[in-house]
């Protein structure tokens, strides 16, 4: 990890218009605030983990970063250029540098294409004039790199296991040598032993190719293992961003604390005596989020001013630790 910032996101908002059921076509649609003002930086060669419960906007944020979803407001500066302002054609050209790995390994591969064609598809899109032999060579090199036998090039996705399919997905994402790869829960559909293989492969490839990764997962231990920095999200907002070990050993935000207390510890003695800080209530609706701090309705330590205005993401004095909470700081 270097200090070379490649992506700077400022106050990114992604809202979806929802037409209420049985309404007239001209009634004003409701707005679902999936991501509501997130700012973050991504540095060259680092892994940024994003955690949070289901429906907190992790995947939406990740897709908005690479321009797969339109941003309502805010800036996504990629190497100094604002991606949200680009037209379709120049955005498509940028896709070469921004790639994605998907959750369901088998569903992300077209069942009618053999894997040679699947992995070669990005090459075909960006270098249509590349000779066939060279393309095949590149595909086979990439297959070897992700740990697939190159002579399986003519097989079809249904002939592979889940872990192998995920390797095919990784090969497809990396064949254009991108700079940033979004991993949207790449291991949650795999069983534990395969998870470890895929994660180690990702880490090795990251080192070799100097990739930056944005890694989304539900499994907090996996995120800790792979990430340099971790961002905690809640209802479309960033709650806390910190260096991975710092966040796991010294969580500051009440939500992060509750989240961390739920991480299972592989020691039955400690695990038995552990208390999990259960949060009361359910995740509020992102169509009508609470005023002020979005977490205040479930926060055990909410103050009066939490309802009045939202806390800004501020950097703690001991560097590399940002937090959005009224309890901490000024």
């Amino acid at each position: 990890m270097t200090n070379n910032r490649i992506m700077q996101v400022q106050d990114l908002k992604v809202h979806f218009d929802i037409q209420p059921e049985n309404s007239w076509p001209w009634t004003k649609p409701l707005s679902l605030k999936a991501v509501d003002g997130v700012s973050l930086d991504i540095f060259e060669g680092e892994t940024l983990g994003i955690v949070g419960e289901s429906g907190c906007g992790k995947s939406t944020l990740a897709r908005a970063l690479i321009g797969m979803l339109p941003a309502r407001e805010g800036k996504v500066a990629w190497l100094g250029q604002d991606l949200t302002q680009l037209d379709k054609r120049s955005m498509r050209a940028k896709r070469q540098e921004l790639q994605m790995i998907f959750q369901d390994p088998l569903a992300s591969l077209n069942p009618r294409m053999n894997i040679g064609d699947i992995i070669a598809e990005p090459l075909q899109t960006f270098f249509p004039n590349m000779p066939k032999a060279e393309r095949k060579q590149k595909v086979q090199d990439m297959m070897a790199k992700v740990g697939l036998l190159p002579n399986l090039i003519n097989r079809y996705p249904h002939e592979f296991s889940g872990g192998q399919c995920q390797r095919i997905g990784i090969a497809r994402a990396l064949i254009l040598e991108p700079k940033l790869v979004i991993c949207d829960e790449p291991v949650s559909a795999l069983d534990v032993s395969i998870q470890a293989q895929v994660i180690n492969l990702l880490m090795a490839l990251q080192k070799e190719m100097g990739l930056s990764l944005v890694f989304i997962a539900h499994d907090l231990s996996v995120v800790r293992h792979i990430s340099d920095r971790v961002m905690v999200m809640y209802l479309g907002n960033a709650m806390e961003v910190a260096e991975a070990n710092e966040l796991y050993t010294n969580p500051q935000h009440p939500y992060t604390k509750a989240l961390m207390s739920a991480v299972p510890i592989p020691d039955p003695m400690i695990e038995r005596n552990k208390t999990i800080e259960l949060l009361q209530g359910d995740l509020p609706s992102p169509i009508n989020p609470p005023s002020g701090c979005v977490f205040r309705t479930r926060c055990p330590q909410a103050l009066a001013k939490c309802a009045d205005y939202a806390p800004a993401l501020q950097t703690l004095p001991d560097a590399e630790h940002q937090i959005a909470c009224h309890l901490i700081g000024p």
Binding site: I66, R95, Q99, A107, S108, N110, E121, P122, T125, R172
Partner: peptide
């Protein structure tokens, strides 16, 4: 997801229709 993957790879809409949907 494979249609989304094709979109993420920058494949044009026409090619997605012809190569991924129609088959």
């Amino acid at each position: 997801e494979f249609i989304e993957a094709a979109n993420a790879c920058g494949v044009s809409q026409w090619r997605i229709l012809v190569r991924h949907i129609v088959p």
